[in-house]
Design a binder for these strands. Structure first.
Length: 556
RNA sequence: GUCCCAGUAGCUCAGCUGGAUAGAGCAACAGACUUCUAAUCUGUAGGUCGGGAGUUCGAAUCUCUCCUGGGACGCCA
């Protein structure tokens, strides 16, 4: 429990007591006490709207109620400096802020652990993300999902959840057959044969590279082999090569998974037939037009879905149902799926399946990642996986760097489309927000270096009461918020809150830096306190940037 | 036609569980380096929160409806 939460809790309790004491409402009638942090400093450190909420229950004017509450409030207990009633009946609390003195030691003591909480109480959460078909390169859209998923996991982990990162490998469907035929065509083309690509094949450069690799290793020895044998080999080779590419790209993007789950294993372990059996037992299955259908409409889907096609093969949905059943059987409290916007129509049928299997749908979360539009030179760059002109993740990293790419992807909410400005991400200038934050960190490091070389005392002991300048208090308050920001980002699955926070903190730091001098020969006591403050800010910035997966430079 | 997401400053976007005078960055304009890093700071200007109705003490936020943009509506994956 951090200092800020403690202060809030005490205050809430005091308010609740005061309401009861003033006979405004009974304990049972009492609504949840809500404290908000006003945007405007003139409205205090906390504001309560309880008087307005009680207007109906107490049958009094809100401002009158507010006065009654204040009268019955024990101000010393909650360490309140001043209380005002404002506007329609807000009660504004100005705190003594003596808790701010504790914040720096708390941060320096926690160090890299500052920001961590036990909000998640060790709840088991699994996040499945990226899960791109192993049939080509990762491109821009996947990159956004990768960044979102990875930062979400970092944030969940920091908030005390037990997180597992998983990648679902689609290595069994007919897209893998298409992959095999595509590789075959490219292979033969590589050897000068006039072969056409399959109509629905994969036209990306990645396939050409795989074919080249086969030629380099085996020459033309597959040309005269039996077609079936050849395709079977190309399938495995293509699959492994693609997976290797994907893993390398993700690693370069600083994304690593705990578990790679193979779709094939569902077949091997008879998980699919198990799932079908379970659905059948629940009477959610019927036969029509030589196919097997799932009554997903019973749980709100638009139409029923085919599970077994008339040719006897499964649709994509079938193994995926078995996969989700398996996930839930592994005992997760939450399973979070990160999907692209083009898959959103798939959500209701999956949710239906989970309910039909008897699992609570509250455990199942889908985060939809909206599309990324790439802009360069003020113009929209078209992307298409089919034509192979997609902007690959690899190229993006090479072009703008991992830091900028990751930062940009988690700056915006996942359900807003993202305009990715290549020129901006590339630019090493003040236009680029990533440098703004990193620069704040580097600036502090420089100051601390100077402090050392100029032999300022940098004791453990310092007098926090010397930090009273407006910008210092702003920094302290912001620092105190960090654990809550991380916890909120985790609970609501909104990693961009952390990006926002880190930017705001950097902004306060820069502002402070320009207004006040840290290293001051004429005021060594205050210098010592400010050095401690700078260390605390550096820690919070570093921890925030680390959660985003961005590097933390000491010099720029 | 049905469903999902978005519509907030010139541009890109935040805006929590409904709260007070709707915020930030960029762009524009005016300033600040003999000083710990100017990749910075300070200030000014910029808004019918897509339109309309409703819910209530109070709506950018909730409900309904319409408009615009994007996406999805397969025995594809």
């Amino acid at each position: 429990m951090n200092v800020l939460e403690q202060t809030e809790d005490t205050l809430k309790q005091e308010i609740a007591d005061a309401v009861v004491k003033a006979n405004l409402a009974t304990k049972e009638q009492l609504p949840d006490i809500v404290l908000e942090k006003p945007k405007d400093k003139a409205h205090g450190d906390f504001a309560a709207n309880i008087a307005m909420q009680l207007a109906r229950i107490a049958k009094k004017a809100p401002r009158q109620i507010a006065d009654d509450i204040i009268e019955n409030l024990d101000q010393t207990k909650a360490s309140i400096e001043k209380i005002e009633v404002a506007g329609p009946g807000f009660i504004n609390f100005f705190m003594k802020n003596d808790f701010l003195g504790d914040i720096i030691p708390t941060i320096l003591d926690a160090d890299t652990a500052y920001g961590k909480t036990d909000t998640g109480k060790g709840e088991k959460v699994q996040v499945e993300f990226v899960s791109v078909n192993p049939t080509g390169d990762l491109h821009l859209g996947h990159a956004r999902g990768a960044a979102y998923g990875d930062v979400l996991c970092n944030v969940l982990d920091a908030a005390g959840y037990d997180v597992q990162r998983e990648y679902y490998i689609n290595d069994a469907g007919n897209q893998i057959d298409k992959l095999a035929y595509s590789v075959e065509a490219r292979y033969l083309q590589e050897l000068g044969q006039d072969v056409e690509m399959p109509e629905d094949g994969y036209h990306g450069q990645a396939i050409v590279d795989i074919a080249k690799k086969i030629v380099a290793e085996d020459g033309d020895q597959w040309v005269n082999k039996d077609k079936e044998e050849r395709v079977a080999y190309f399938k495995e080779f293509g699959l492994q090569s693609s997976l290797e590419n994907i893993k390398n790209d993700l690693k370069a993007f600083r994304v690593e998974f705990d578990n790679w789950f193979s779709e094939r294993s569902l077949y091997q372990d008879e998980k699919i037939s198990d799932a079908l059996k379970k659905l059948e037992e629940g009477n959610y299955i019927y036969e029509k037009d030589d196919a097997t259908w799932f009554k997903s409409t019973e749980y709100g889907d638009d139409k029923d879905r085919v599970l077994v096609k008339s040719d006897g093969s499964y649709t994509y949905l079938t193994p995926d149902i078995a996969y989700h059943k398996d996930k839930l059987e592994r005992g997760f409290d939450q399973i979070i799926n990160v999907w692209g916007a083009d898959h959103h129509g798939y959500v209701p049928r999956m949710r239906a399946a989970i309910q039909a299997l008897g699992y609570p749908s509250e455990k199942f979360h889908v985060k939809i990642i909206q599309m990324v539009n790439l802009f360069e030179g003020g113009e929209k760059v078209r992307m298409s996986k089919r034509t192979g002109r997609a902007v690959a993740l690899r190229d993006l990293i090479e072009d703008v760097g991992v830091d900028a790419a990751r930062y940009f992807f988690v700056t915006r909410s996942n359900d807003s489309q993202l305009d990715f400005d290549m020129d901006l991400a590339r630019s090493e200038s003040n236009e680029n927000p990533i440098y703004y934050v990193q620069y704040a960190h580097a600036r502090i490091c420089t100051m601390l270096e100077q402090a050392k070389s100029k032999e300022f005392q940098t004791d453990e002991a310092f007098d926090a009461s010397l930090l009273t300048a407006e910008k210092e208090v702003d920094l302290l308050k912001k620092l105190a918020e960090f654990p809550q920001v991380v916890a909120e980002a985790a609970e609501k699955h909104l990693p961009h809150k952390v990006t926002q926070y880190v930017f705001d903190l950097a902004s306060l730091l820069h502002s402070f830096y320009n207004a006040e001098k840290v290293l001051d020969q004429d005021n060594l006591e205050r210098t010592n306190a400010r050095i401690a403050l700078m260390k605390a800010v550096r820690t919070a910035l570093a921890n925030g940037l680390t959660l985003i997966g961005v590097s933390v430079p000491e010099k720029m």
